[in-house]
Design a protein around this nucleic acid. Sequence first.
DNA 1: ATGTAC
Length: 487
Amino acid sequence: MTTTFDADGIVLEQVREHVWELPQEDGMRVPARVLASESLLEEISEDRTLEQLRNATHLPGITNYAVCMPDGHQGYGFPVGGVGAMDAENGCISPGAVGYDINCGVRMMKTNLTYDDVSGLERELVDALFEAVPSGLGGGGVVETGVDTVEQILERGVDWALEAGYAVEDDLLHCEDEGVRAGADASMVSQKAKDRGKNQVGSLGSGNHFLEVQRVTDVYDDAVAEAFGLERDQIVVLIHCGSRGLGHQTCNDYLRKIERQHGGLLDQLPDKELAAAPAGSQLAEEYYAAMNAAINYAWVNRQLIMHRTREVFADVFDRPWESMEMDLLYDVAHNIAKKEVHEVDGEDRELYVHRKGATRAFPAGHPNVPAAYRDVGQPVIIPGSMGAGSYVLRGGENSLDLTFGSTAHGAGRLMSRTQAKNEYWGEDVREELESGQGIYVKAQSGATVAEEAPGVYKDVDEVVRVSDELGIGDKVVRTFPVCNIKG
DNA sequence: ATGTAC
């Protein structure tokens, strides 16, 4: 007897615990899968996520299945929390399956401070960070520069930051691709995008982006936590932001170009928002080169914010940041496509792996995991909401088989921003977090706090439980917020 | 997410 889940006519069959499949029918090239508990699946089925996931299976060259992570929700064309691997020779690349905020992602910086060291200094710390780290909509970055420097950043990534004095060698060794995505071509990024990027290098932005000081509250795997350099009561800093106006403009530029030049393919797709460039076409190459450049921009963005954070801690604690061992644990991308080789039906194939609101989660032994972590697996950082805390996982043994080496990226929204603003008042949320939970929040805009109220998100514990039980990303430690700044 | 709109 097969267990089924009927979401207004979209019927999923349970393959096994936490694995639900939408069988191939009509124009679907492959089945679709949702990786979720029943309670998360109920939440996922409330918006257009399942319809968008089904639509995604129409994309040329999509391999095995379109997959939705446990934190999935609807996005532009393709679900946030979606993974689609398209053949790099005969398939396609789709900007909507990468996301508007190219290389939106998170990095975690460690310290050797304990909760006792920062306790009582929360207010001073949050004020100093808010002052030092540019945030909110519009311009203003750690550096404000010209187009020529933006072009360097686009092509050289964190290597540019190293030369400019905003990074140390060790930072590059603890970032995917060592902080420099190959195949980036600044000439494929429009002048308009570069202009928007000039004064936003080192800026948080708005929406769900934030910088949070956290303490480690729980350790689930002693050996892996030790390999990551994490222990109970340790203070860490989480930085969540993306490629700001530059990435947004780049996505928009290529969506319009692809719609114009590949209208034939567009007409065959169930949703215009899935516009895709056929693999091997000039536009596929150009978008890939521009997206890679925007990926580098986002890495530099997070690097400069981390640099500023080190300076703030040095100031507040009156000693050099090096003495506080403020080292990068890892930096994970949430919105990217990448050419990767995966085993499909017993043979190696090169695929454009699109991860939109999904995190790479390569297991121990994978050659692309940085040397420092190769024995235990890639660190995966899952930010929860302001009131919930976050997790560090490690890439699980089953991720390559189930999700092209991916897991969730956060708690996932439960309601739209508009709905959130109707349900919550920013100042009330801020006050409740401070007096109720001792979490100090400082934001440019009260509306942003309302949009990001903890109740707007799914239960991050449940999302992580599913990832852990599926073996795609295993729990290592949990953290809880101390103070948080946002746009 | 986003100079919060095509």
